[in-house]
Write a protein that binds this DNA or RNA. Structure first.
Lengths: 192, 192
DNA sequence: CTCGGATCCTAGCACCGCTAGACAAGGAAG
DNA sequence: CTTCCTTGTCTAGCGGTGCTAGGATCCGAG
């Protein structure tokens, strides 16, 4: 039995290697550069090995996305728990979110721009995604304002952050005003 | 000379055909289905003809984007000019923007999701793009609030709309709350 | 020691964006 | 009228993509 266990362990280890390598490659050269050939070469296996772990490239993107969702949730919680008062907590959340998106563009793309084959905003949404949304909701819910459902408010605030994240990275906004945009957004949206 | 003029006219006409066909194909089956082969087949010319009009696929996307920018600007202006009062004008703008994005997903992608080789938020930004931003600014500037630069406010409001547009189309938001999200956004961001 | 299943690789498919080079049409020059 | 040359278009092909069929090899079980 021990032999099978070892093999399973090795298999899981290789799967981690695939995901980590895909993420690394995407972060270095963009997702376009993550081809099955290059990925296979980097992990020092042949292409078909990838398909024994994942159905296809899409699932690999999805795996990176799930990893990223967990990290983003952690980053957001770390930032909010270090802040005092609802207003400052929301500002910290916004900064942490945008900072995560800017520092991990490939992961952010995997989460929200590319098709990783994941279901969002549904019952069968994977746990890490639900939890990332929950992390936002924890701090945003307390500034939703009277009569506004926390979930609805979180969706709006999140969408605004997402818009800022994607448009500024695509160089469609003036780069020098980034901080002031966040200030304005928090000031207006959050009810304190 | 008349012969050359006729040829120029025919050339311009064919270029319009290429852009229109690319847009149509993208709207029907998504941009992934817009391959140079399929596009060439649809316009009943061979592939290289495309490259005598555009540098490559990216430039074709850019051409669709410019066309879309003009239409979006017109749609936004039509909606705002029919509304009374700043608050209602902004609400009409938001609805028109999101409606345009929902009705023309491929064009919206060409504008803001894909790489069409266009420069944004710069001096050499093509006129239609500048004008589309101007169309937003005309109505949003009057609700920026004291001490907030209209351009900055427009960027934030636009980013929020963009976030709502992309996330809802990617099915990352609850579909039934679309209208309430817009209400909330306008209520909070606009100073009336 | 042999057998059989698991594991992995080579080779290849159909498609992609893009381009070199052949070829035909048509006006200009002799 | 013939020749030439430009202009326009096409066929064919290059190197790449995601993905897979089928053969080889390894290794534990009996």
């Amino acid at each position: 039995m021990s032999v099978q266990e070892r093999k399973q362990r090795e298999r899981a280890e290789r799967e981690r290697l695939i995901v980590a390598t895909a993420r690394e490659l995407a972060e270095q050269q963009g997702w376009d550069a993550v081809t099955t050939r290059r990925l296979a070469e980097r992990i020092e296996y042949s292409q078909p090995v990838l398909y024994s772990h994942f159905r296809g490239k899409r699932e690999i993107i999805g795996a990176v996305a799930l990893q990223g969702a967990a990290e983003m949730a952690a980053a957001v919680r770390a930032a909010t728990s270090a802040a005092n008062g609802p207003r400052e907590r929301v500002a910290a959340l916004a900064r942490a979110y945008l900072d995560f998106a800017a520092r991990n563009p490939a992961v952010y793309d995997a989460l929200f721009q590319l098709d990783g084959g994941l279901a969002y905003a549904r019952e069968d949404t994977p746990a890490p995604l639900k939890d990332a949304f929950a992390a936002l909701l924890e701090s945003l819910g307390e500034v939703a304002g009277d009569g506004v459902p926390p979930g609805l408010f979180t969706e709006v605030f999140w969408a605004s952050l997402h818009g800022l994240a994607t448009l500024s990275r695509a160089e469609r906004l003036l780069p020098e005003d980034a901080a002031r945009r966040v200030e304005l957004l928090v000031d207006r949206l959050a009810v304190v």
